[in-house]
Amino acid sequence: MTVTFYFSEWRVVLVGKTGHGKSALGNSLLRHRGFFESPVSSESVTSHCRTGYRDMQNGYRLVVVDTPGLFDTRVTNNEISKELVRCISLACPGPHAFLFVLSIDRFTKEELDTIDHLKELFGKDVTKFVIFVFNGKDSLEYAGITLENYIKKSPVQLQSLIHRCGGRMTTINNRVPPKSKEDDVNNILSLVEQTIRSNGDKYYTNEMFEAAEKVYQSKIRELEDKYGKRLAELELREKIRKEIEEHEVFPNKIRELEKRLTELE
Results as ranks from 00 to 15, higher is better:
Val3Pro: 08
Thr4Ser: 11
Phe5Lys: 13
Tyr6Arg: 12
Ser8Asn: 14
Ser8Thr: 10
Val12Gln: 00
Val12Arg: 02
Val13Ala: 03
Leu14Val: 11
Gly16Phe: 01
Thr18Leu: 01
Asn27Cys: 03
Asn27Val: 00
His32Asp: 10
Cys49Met: 01
Arg54Phe: 01
Met56Ser: 06
Gln57Pro: 07
Arg61Ile: 04
Val65Asp: 03
Gly69Asp: 02
Leu70Asn: 07
Leu70Asp: 06
Thr73Cys: 11
Thr73Ala: 11
Arg74Lys: 10
Val75Ser: 07
Val75Lys: 07
Val75Ile: 15
Thr76Cys: 02
Asn77Trp: 01
Glu79Ser: 14
Ser81Phe: 08
Leu84Ile: 10
Val85Ala: 14
Arg86Trp: 05
Ile88Arg: 04
His96Trp: 04
Leu102Glu: 11
Arg106Asn: 10
Arg106Cys: 05
Glu110Cys: 06
Leu112Ala: 06
Leu118Val: 13
Gly123Phe: 00
Phe132Asp: 01
Lys137Tyr: 01
Tyr142Arg: 15
Ile145Glu: 04
Ile151Gly: 02
Ile151Cys: 04
Leu161Tyr: 12
Ile162Ser: 00
Cys165Thr: 05
Arg168Leu: 09
Met169Gly: 05
Asn174Val: 12
Arg175Gln: 12
Val176Met: 09
Ser180Lys: 15
Asn186Pro: 09
Thr195Val: 13
Tyr203His: 14
Tyr203Met: 07
Asn206Leu: 15
Phe209Cys: 05
Glu210Cys: 14
Lys219Trp: 13
Arg221His: 06
Lys229Gly: 06
Arg230Ser: 07
Pro251Cys: 00
Glu263Tyr: 08
Leu264Glu: 08
Leu264Met: 11
Leu264Pro: 08
